[in-house]
Amino acid sequence: MDTAETRLTFRDAAAADVDELVALIESAYRGESSRAGWTTEADLLQGQRTDPEGVLGVIESPGSRLLTVERDGRIVACCQLEHRGSYAYFGMFAVSPVLQGAGLGKTVIAEAERQARETWGVTEMRMTVISVREDLIAWYERRGYRRTGRTTPFPYGDERFGIPLRDDLRFELLVKPLV
């Protein structure tokens, strides 16, 4: 059986990858191209999801990694891992919209959890998700994450995170034990 997983290469992102990573992240969440996948935020937010400075900041930050996933020499997915003491923060997760729904995301998050556990010895993964993204939260719940009910405000007025199309956006903390 020839699966996408058999051709994947995981590596840390480099500064030379920034433009390709920004394009991937934007395509997974914003604009018409994001509608090819199921993770789109196009009905919630307009504008950018990230920018070159934000991606480079993750790459260059101590205790942070931008795990990059290649297939056939092309970046097809990525995620941020940040060491925060006893836990790791998982963010900036993107899978190419045309590859969503085929199991690639499950493979990437499992590898991210494994690397965080083995590299840093963390016992928990944490992330924040826009609380109205019920389908996305359900996907994470099927991967073992649980809702905490703890929320933080969406950064309204800071266009680096997008231009909200509704006024009820908040981030909810999800957690998963890594044991």
Score class of each variant (00 low, 15 high):
106 K>H: 07
96 S>H: 07
70 E>K: 00
87 Y>P: 07
104 L>Y: 03
112 A>H: 02
41 E>I: 05
78 C>A: 12
82 E>C: 06
109 I>V: 14
80 Q>T: 06
29 Y>S: 06
48 Q>H: 10
102 A>Q: 15
41 E>H: 12
44 L>H: 12
83 H>S: 11
95 V>S: 00
49 R>Y: 13
29 Y>E: 12
75 I>W: 14
54 G>N: 05
82 E>H: 05
69 V>H: 02
24 L>I: 06
52 P>K: 15
111 E>N: 04
89 Y>F: 12
108 V>T: 03
91 G>H: 03
18 V>Q: 10
96 S>E: 02
109 I>D: 04
51 D>N: 15
50 T>I: 09
72 D>T: 00
47 G>R: 03
52 P>F: 14
61 S>L: 11
20 E>W: 06
100 Q>Y: 09
21 L>T: 13
56 L>H: 10
63 G>R: 02
39 T>M: 15
111 E>T: 04
70 E>P: 02
88 A>V: 07
73 G>S: 01
31 G>L: 06
94 A>H: 11
59 I>H: 06
17 D>G: 00
67 L>H: 03
51 D>F: 13
65 R>S: 01
67 L>E: 01
80 Q>C: 05
80 Q>K: 10
35 R>A: 09
62 P>I: 06
76 V>C: 01
71 R>F: 00
105 G>D: 11
37 G>K: 11
83 H>K: 04
77 A>T: 03
35 R>T: 15
23 A>E: 08
87 Y>F: 14
28 A>M: 08
26 E>S: 15
88 A>W: 12
16 A>P: 00
77 A>C: 07
77 A>I: 08
100 Q>F: 08
27 S>C: 08
101 G>R: 11
103 G>Q: 01
44 L>Q: 09
59 I>G: 07
42 A>D: 14
85 G>E: 04
95 V>D: 03
76 V>L: 01
72 D>Q: 01
51 D>M: 13
104 L>E: 13
52 P>Q: 14
28 A>R: 04
19 D>T: 14
35 R>C: 10
31 G>K: 06
95 V>M: 02
111 E>M: 04
53 E>F: 12
83 H>E: 13
40 T>P: 09
41 E>L: 14
52 P>E: 14
108 V>F: 08
84 R>S: 06
66 L>T: 08
109 I>S: 03
26 E>I: 15
25 I>D: 04
63 G>D: 09
42 A>L: 08
49 R>W: 13
22 V>W: 04
98 V>S: 14
56 L>A: 05
57 G>T: 07
79 C>R: 05
50 T>V: 11
106 K>N: 05
31 G>R: 07
50 T>E: 10
64 S>I: 01
64 S>G: 03
57 G>Q: 14
23 A>Y: 01
59 I>V: 12
26 E>T: 15
35 R>I: 09
90 F>V: 10
58 V>F: 00
74 R>T: 09
86 S>D: 13
75 I>H: 04
20 E>P: 05
98 V>W: 12
60 E>T: 12
98 V>H: 13
102 A>R: 15
42 A>N: 12
52 P>C: 13
55 V>W: 08
61 S>M: 10
75 I>A: 03
